[in-house]
């Protein structure tokens, strides 16, 4: 199964786990399965139309999915899916 790396702001929704294993052969399927396993996380990642929010980036391994096949990007066992939200902190 692919591993999803959960950013700090969302870890309270994954019982504080930084990494979770989630099934899914595309990014889209994986994100929906993530919501099924960790209710509440879906609405933080996806907008009302089910699209990934515009202040969140999803990477498969090292590459941002817009440079791959977007939400249809295929996943294989062992892939790492990183969720990287905008953060404003600096002070």
């Amino acid at each position: 199964m692919p591993t999803v790396l959960i950013p700090t702001p969302l870890r309270r929704l994954t019982a504080n786990q930084a990494k979770v294993e989630v099934a899914g052969d595309t990014v889209d399927v994986l994100l929906h399965n993530l919501e099924a396993g960790y209710p509440g996380i879906g609405e933080r990642l996806l907008d009302a139309d089910g699209k990934i929010k515009r202040f969140i980036n999803v990477f498969v391994n090292e590459d941002e999915i817009r440079t791959l096949q977007g939400a249809d990007t295929p996943l294989a066992a062992g892939d790492r899916v990183s969720i990287v939200p905008a953060m404003a902190g600096g002070a």
Binding site: R54, F55, N57, G89, A91
Partner: peptide, 20 residues
């Protein structure tokens, strides 16, 4: 390019709220 839109107010906590 990375973040075309900001998160809606309140959706992303600040360091003052969440700590650092």
């Amino acid at each position: 390019c990375l973040y075309p839109d900001p998160p809606p107010p309140g959706e992303v906590p600040s360091c003052a709220e969440a700590g650092v």
